[in-house]
Design a binder for these strands. Structure first.
Lengths: 358, 358
DNA sequence: CCTGAAATTGTTATCGATATCATCTTGCCG
DNA sequence: CGGCAAGATGATATCGATAACAATTTCAGG
């Protein structure tokens, strides 16, 4: 569908209107380019009258500031990078929202990337981001490739790691202990009389938060003298709802007398519950199931799912706030650790009195 | 926790290592900066030997390319912008994944922004993106503010609108008719004998895809002589699972004899089903419910949800492909419309024979 | 051994804004 | 009315890479 012979083509050629530069706006208004540049900034000293005239011209001509030129000259890119494992996960998108909100009036934009739970992909993304010279960077977790660490160190910008408490933090940390959180859930359920604990999670170590939850489970079950936990590993993290369903089948085949199953996330817990329901088992009457993360689904589905509520939004907001602190104080603040909250949310899926049947 | 008096502070000051420039790498290797620049690109003619030496130096020194300088000089920013309504929505994140995959070896990066279903926020984001001079832009839907349209026209870059078939397309379109898709679902269910149709959706016109689905429903119900549809509007789009639950309660209060309810999305359908279950109604025995979007949850939950499956991933992949076409052919291709597929997926939630009870 | 094309490398100007410093107004106070 | 600080504006150099063209080297073929 080419039509090179149609001259009145309304489509834009490269550089059709694009060419417009600050100098041209300046000429149009009758001031210097520098004054136009100043008019675009809050603090700069330009008389209100001049700024108004400039902005009218900008509007009339349809000029759009060119940040790639600006950031080269000012050595400020005006954005911070944030890497999350997945965009399609309400926990992380809440975190992203927290970051965006915290950056609201800072003049900084958030650039999101997703790593797919892969340290290699994270490394690639870190490099891609650093090439655009972010003023700071927020990562999820504390597990990075050696090269990624080297690049970050060289970059000379503040780094915030989130959602975990890394053993060897790069800089700032905003998070909580996934292992402790899971331990709390185990102890809470044990105190309600549950004794035979099962666990469902992904197979590999890709998802470090998942592994931490798993080890928190394992450790606590043993501490309480409830023997080794009944662990099922299924699928590559992050495990899906469907895999949660498959996992509980294997688990119950192997240990039919299991009383309660903890899942690495609410999504797998939901899959497990649905699969049980489909097979004629009642949750929690025949088996209790709990998740992690307090996703929307857990308070809606039937039965409602017991879980750990994490302050996802707060993690994002505080991570961004830490970064802003670091930038304002000339990046001389300490490498602090900000602990964020979590709490057990007990719901129907582990209710010892069962749930009113539908 | 300041410690300005601790000189051996390992933390980085601004410009600690950052300073490294291409010229320094060049000096280190004993070539010109231009040669270093060439070494970073695939096509450029640099002897293998020189490139190797340069890359070793880059590694040793920890140099990271500066794209903000590069793109100013080359007038190519190396990224395309994509705006989606929400990142926490598996439909759109599948679309984003499709885009990322399609851009794989193009040398272009994807920059995501989310508009929160708001045209004003979209306008802001478009401006923020254009300031960084993307080489193309992908939007969701065809509803934009006048200023957004003006800015896009001026920008002189290819634009792809997705997920709908706008009446007044800017440039390329990759999508399908939401209205037709919903109509198909209505006809399919009507052919199974359903007669009394209800509909649940959000209130305002913010979500244009939602409104299109609604009007497709309305039109078709009337065409089939099934009277005016029983419409419940509840909550600001995108409506949540919980709102789906609240909506079905109002709907059944008002029209207790409703046989089947179509929802603007699977999420509200799920909420509606759970609420019914909780109130002792069986789906589909007492009432049938269907959704839209074929989210993971719909094939997992109990009962499984009848829905419309949309080729989300394909929308993203093709949108990016269209953009690449336009860029390669010197943006002289026609403003084409690429239709993407959808299909009805019949599941338990509308099964006329009921569903095996748990 | 010479010639010309291809391959490799270097030089210089430039992209479009902003930092920095200089200049020019304005207005207030003694 | 002089003087000076604060405010507004302008001129110029510069950020760090790449485009464009020039220069040099390499090498095949006669």
């Amino acid at each position: 569908m080419k039509n090179e012979d149609e001259p009145k083509d309304k489509r834009l050629k490269p550089g059709d209107a694009q060419k417009l530069t600050m100098a041209e706006v300046a000429k149009y208004v009758g001031v210097s380019a520098m004054t136009v540049s100043r008019a675009f900034r809050q603090d700069a000293s330009v008389s209100e009258e001049t700024r108004k005239r400039i902005m009218e011209a900008v509007d009339a001509l349809g000029y759009v500031l060119d940040l790639s030129a600006g950031s080269l000259s000012s050595r400020r890119s005006g954005f911070i990078a944030a890497l999350v494992p997945s965009i399609n996960n309400s926990n992380f998108s809440d975190t992203a929202r927290g970051m965006t909100d915290a950056l609201q009036n800072s003049g900084l934009q958030l650039l999101l990337g997703y790593t797919d739970y892969s340290a290699e992909k994270e490394e690639e993304l870190i490099e891609a981001m650093l090439r655009r010279r972010p003023e700071g960077i927020i990562l999820t977790g504390g597990s990075h490739t050696a090269r990624a660490r080297r690049m970050l160190a060289k970059a000379g910008i503040p780094v915030v790691e989130t959602w975990e408490l890394p053993e060897d933090p790069i800089n700032h940390v905003v998070g909580f202990s996934n292992s402790e959180a899971m331990a709390l859930l185990v102890r809470t359920l044990a105190s309600q009389g549950y004794r035979k604990f099962g666990y469902i999670g992904g197979t590999t170590a890709r998802d470090t938060r998942g592994s931490q939850r798993r080890s928190g489970f394992q450790k606590t079950v043993e501490e309480l003298g409830l023997g080794p936990g009944r662990m099922i590993s299924f699928g590559v993290p992050p495990i899906t709802m469907e895999q949660g369903g498959q996992a509980i089948v294997s688990l119950l085949e192997r240990w039919p007398d299991t009383e309660v199953v903890l899942c690495v996330s609410d999504l797998s817990a939901f899959g497990a519950i649905m699969e049980c329901t489909r097979r004629g088992m009642k949750v929690p009457r025949d088996i209790a199931i709990a998740g992690f993360g307090d996703y929307e689904i857990s308070s809606i589905c039937h039965p409602r799912i017991t879980t750990i509520n994490v302050d996802c939004y707060g993690i994002g907001r505080q991570a961004a706030a830490r970064l802003l602190d670091a930038l304002h104080t000339g990046e001389a603040t300490g490498d602090e650790i900000t602990l964020t909250g979590y709490k057990v949310v007990l719901r129907e899926s582990t209710d010892r009195n069962g749930v009113p049947t539908a």
